[in-house]
Design a protein around this nucleic acid. Sequence first.
DNA 1: TTGGCGAGCGAAAACGTTTTCGTGTTAAAA
DNA 2: TTTTAACACGAAAACGTTTTCGCTCGCCAA
Lengths: 346, 346
Amino acid sequence: MKRKITLKQIAKELDVSISTVSKALRNSIEISEDTREKVQAFAKLYNYRPNNIALSLKNRKTKTIGVIIPEIVHHFFSKVIQGIELVANKRGYNVIVGLSNESFAKEVINMQMLANGSIDGFILSIAKETLQQQDYHHFNETISQGMPIVMFDRVIHEINCDKVIIDDMKGSKNAVDKLLRNGCKNVAIITTKDYVSVGRLRTQGYLQALEEYKMSPDAKLILKVDDELVSEDHLDSLEVEIESLFKENQNIDGVFAVNELYAIIAMKVARKMGLKIPDDIQFIGFTDGVLSKHATPSLTTVSQHGQQMGEKAADLLINKLENEEEEEFFETIVIETNLIERESTK
Amino acid sequence: MKRKITLKQIAKELDVSISTVSKALRNSIEISEDTREKVQAFAKLYNYRPNNIALSLKNRKTKTIGVIIPEIVHHFFSKVIQGIELVANKRGYNVIVGLSNESFAKEVINMQMLANGSIDGFILSIAKETLQQQDYHHFNETISQGMPIVMFDRVIHEINCDKVIIDDMKGSKNAVDKLLRNGCKNVAIITTKDYVSVGRLRTQGYLQALEEYKMSPDAKLILKVDDELVSEDHLDSLEVEIESLFKENQNIDGVFAVNELYAIIAMKVARKMGLKIPDDIQFIGFTDGVLSKHATPSLTTVSQHGQQMGEKAADLLINKLENEEEEEFFETIVIETNLIERESTK
DNA sequence: TTGGCGAGCGAAAACGTTTTCGTGTTAAAA
DNA sequence: TTTTAACACGAAAACGTTTTCGCTCGCCAA
């Protein structure tokens, strides 16, 4: 149960000064070859590694980035983390995660826990509650204290920081386009309440596509789901809502859903009602995940490239961290979406 | 772009010593009420928070736990992280994640990165490659340096540390039991190569169940999948293998798979071959996830309670960290599995 | 007057590094 | 012999805390 060995102990054992040991280990030419070899051999024997915390304190940087996401049991977010971790590790950084659980309070607390020196910068996606309350003081405070932030997916454009997003509007427009091109005459959308920015944008894309096809939107075909319903197991009521949407609008022959779960559930309802997919009705979901790929029929989706978003975000952050130039220049990277065609569309 | 304020700066501004500021902020009775109030007001104004790194260095503990898992884009592992994060935060700890990607080298490197003072202890699940190579020196070294480890799910019993596991054998025995009770006469198993301990144990449970029903196992009904095939998109060959399993053994009327993906794919193949689920053939998978719940038909599974595993592991680790008693006493907690019955069984 | 005591505060060490700036020794140059 | 330069190394500061110990008052009792 020996503690980790330190420079001081090595110095004592070898009867030299701490500085000499430090320099010897870093191969300084100041130190004679003799001493260098002796020290290095000893250090190797005892498996010496510099204490990270001490280095962090000295260098005033931790080589760690903090990631705060709304939830982790979620294909998209875990893909993003995978991407972040990939480039972070490649560039010598660690990743520390915090979950907000979509709660404003937890987001604030988590940021405070990390902002006190534990990390060099943040990568985050904003909690729904924060979006709803529109209280962004914690972001601004963090930034004004000199800690860079990169936001992804759910961002606030008014905040001065780097961002990585997808073109939600274009992505969903393309999807709806596809349905219309495939001959759908009555395309419904299953979306979220408007305060979730991505939901709003995806709805706009839907409307744009219709407009381009000279079709006027029908309010009855727009289902705005209250998020409370999606919390884990309250999906039954969502099924009911979708079922009544279908029953009251028998002419629906295409459905675009703003996430894969909604789409999968809608497909289930349709099948239960005896509809044939994709002959009677076609489906496209947003956010490609494991469900879409392995459902039957497999679901055509708009891929968000979560991992790529994570990689870009990490690169953006680390670039900022390692550029001392302080140029107050913020980028917004837009990741291209693409449509992955599967069995749920013709 | 002001830096975070430090004790030293406060001391200078108020023309007192650093010690006075520190004591005043911690409400020491050594300091007069006057001074205390003055200091606290100033600190509040400038939003002072003690620097975490400095505290870590001084206290020789970081209040951070390191988690190393094979992959994160995986329902089970992300559930575990969620559990870890939940109790860690509740008890004042942060969580820093490393991904091994099932690679021995990455596991070792990640552990080294973190073991140099960044964290107080590890929670981990072992990479497949490590299990295969049976090289565990990095675990033993870490432990002998006084850093506690808690292993979960994929563990090595020979290593002296706390563990959180499920009773894989019992879980799968129960599942196969269920199939046999439901009238299945020829139950196949889709499992992994034996070096993955959980795969091996689950296979044993399958054999036990058969034995109890006085049925002799049939080697042709045991499909050991090579993991290479499961890497992302090489699932086609898995489908082919399963298809030939079914074709060559037309009498199969029950399938037990050691993870949900295998089960889902097997169901797909069965359906393609015109079999009715659960009338002609019944399915049970191990590891409950999002796929099982939303597949059609939904899949009966053995739930592993990932979140609970994470919570237990975190509690175990933090207890050890906060108990100075050094009693060299290691626990193994076994989480009960339970069968979640859905549409894929009668 | 002296001694003692408590209140209020500061100096300094410690955590483990890195780095700057000496300093002493030796060998070469003058 | 004296000066100089190179060489090899050590002392100390710094990063931001907390905490122990000691110091200086002022006051009270003897």
